[in-house]
Structure formats: C-alpha cells, structure tokens
C-alpha cells in the first residue's frame, strides 16, 4: 500500500514537472506545477513530516503559485508565446538535462544508506518536535530569516513603486 502510494505520487510529480516545461501556455505550466507541489506534499505526509506538508501547501500552493498566477494575469501573458528559440536550443537543453541525470544516477548508484536506530519512533516531523528544535537550536537563523523577509518585502515594494516615482518626478520636472 505504501509502496503503491509512493510510486503513484512519484509518477504524478514527475509527469506534472514534465508538463511544466512542455506546456506552451504559461498558465497551464503554473497549474501543473501546483499539482506537482501537491504530490510532493503527499510525499511529506508519507514521510510523516506533517509540519512540512502543511507549510509546503500553504507557502507554495497558497502563496507562491498564486503570486505567479497574479503576475501572469497582470502582465496578460496567459496566451501561448510564439516560439522564438530554435528547435536546436530545445534539443540541446533536453540533452544537457538528461546528461545531468545520467551523471547523478551514476554517482549515486552505489549509495548504501540504512535507516539508523534513532529513527525508529519517527516523531521528528511533528510540529512539537520541530518547533522545539527551531526555537532552541536554530533560533538565531530563524530571526535572521525574518530580517530576510523584511528586506524582500521592502525590495519588492520598492521595485513595484519605482515607475510611479519616476512619473511624479517627471511631472515636477515639467
């Protein structure tokens, strides 16, 4: 049963990831990427990483992909772009990606990792245990990440406002 779920979720995630780069319409790419993210969230549930599964759905499917969809709608890019690149570039990209896959498989082929004895209870993915680790051992990186978010928010707002400021300065200049 678990093996079946694993292979089902893996097939869905790989298929939707392929559709992301094969779809001509960017909106379809976004939608298939959302399905792939839900499949990855299913993998997290399978691994008993409940906190990560919830956060993954909220952050990726709920925030980041909605942001992508909004930008696509605002820029009115929700139509298939005419193909500007040649087929040669596409084939070269596919070959390069495939070669990377072959390299990784060849280098990881002889890995022999066994679950250690400490993993037996499988409770580390619960909110309680992760929160304990996050707010004791990793509290300084947690605070620094809040500063990163503040900087990203200020940067995004500043980038979005610049055009208006240019207009106002142009008006005062006139």
């Amino acid at each position: 049963m678990v093996a079946f779920l694993f292979y089902l979720l893996s097939a869905v995630s790989v298929l939707c990831a392929l559709l992301v780069l094969l779809m001509r319409n960017p909106v379809h790419s976004v939608l298939s990427l959302i399905i792939a993210f839900f499949a990855i969230a299913g993998h997290y549930v399978l691994l008993n990483a409940q906190f990560l599964a919830i956060v993954h759905v909220i952050v990726y499917a709920g925030a980041i992909m909605v942001l992508f969809l909004f930008v696509l709608m605002i820029l009115n890019l929700n139509k298939a772009a005419p193909p500007y690149q040649t087929t040669l570039v596409k084939v070269m990209g596919a070959i390069a990606g495939g070669l990377l896959l072959v390299t990784m498989v060849a280098s990881l082929k002889h890995s022999a990792i066994q679950p250690v004895a400490g993993a037996e209870d499988g409770q580390i993915g619960l909110v309680k245990n992760l929160g304990k680790a996050l707010f004791t051992e990793y509290v300084v990186p947690f605070e620094i990440s809040s500063i990163l978010f503040l900087a990203a928010m200020v940067g995004a707002v500043t980038l979005g406002m610049r055009n208006k400021k240019d207009n106002s300065s142009a008006i005062t200049h006139l």
Binding site: V20, G93, G97, L100, M104
Partner: peptide, 10 residues
Amino acid sequence: FSIGVAGVLM
C-alpha cells in the same frame, strides 16, 4: 532536479 535544469535551459 534534472527536469528543472532542462526547463531552465529549454
């Protein structure tokens, strides 16, 4: 990961 890399290139 390879699909992501191929997408960035393609």
